[in-house]
Amino acid sequence: MAKSATFSKLHDWLISEDFTSSRQARLHSVYLGWLSLIANPLAFAGFAVVLLLIIVAALAPVITVHDPFAQDFLMALKAPSSTHWFGTDEFGRDVFSRLVYGARTTLYITILVTVIVAPIGFVIGATAGYLGGWVDVVLMRITDIFLSFPSLVLALAFSAALGPGIENAVIAIALTVWPPIARLARAETLTFRHADFVVAAELQGAGVGRILLRHIVPLCAPSIIVRLTLNMSSIILTAAGLGFLGLGAQPPMAEWGAMAASGRQYLLDAWWLTTVPGIAILTVSLAFNLLGDGLRDIMDPRNG
């Protein structure tokens, strides 16, 4: 009883627009976002899956009982059972353990690519949009060159040139992901470039850096975050594709794409080898898509 009273008090405090501190104002908007997220079942499902992925990746050693790298040829290609939930692979390794550790690899790649791509895309796009003129022309033509290649082909070429390995895969994927972000940042910047509040800041003596970081970033952030979230599924797919082709994570590292690839030759005898990582890739990329769509509804004022 007392607990629900505190909770409803907290709710009232968060929902009240009569702010008494800037922290309350910030928490208020976060809370409203949370309320609309849980009101949208699909987005919430996406959020739940992503959250689950993060928990699984963080607690991998606790969740698994088998070592993902321990080989046991006597146990090779065993069907799913109570000891090996998702069966074993051709080296007798536990597929469930590898799947759980593979979540770490997947998350590592997506987060690293996103962290690299967001600032690069924003700086290039926003600078081009805000300054205009020849800066715009040069930056956007470079972006166009990157955009004119199919992203998987470009990633393939880069990781082939850089050599196989997970860090190189991250660099290769990042090179293919930034141009659309830059384009988006430029388009968003152009819509606010001549807004009165930007002019007001200019007339008070704000420099280019301040206007970009303080005024343009908060306005571009929602659509860029949405775009990045939607991109995460394609990052996962590209990473899996590179892994499948042997250019991503190298054995014995657990990676979903590589797992699916190596299971290919046993497809008829051991369906679980390709199916399980395949379903994992599908679920996680779908979840990121659903979450991205939901975030768009919540964060983008044009849809609200």
């Binding site: 800037s22 104002a25 807004a195 009165d196 509040f197 007001a200 005024h215 908060p218 306005l219 004022p301």
Partner: peptide, 9 residues
């Protein structure tokens, strides 16, 4: 409506 930054307090 257009002269104040919508995401700043």
């Amino acid at each position: 409506f257009g002269s104040i930054h919508p995401r700043h307090t």
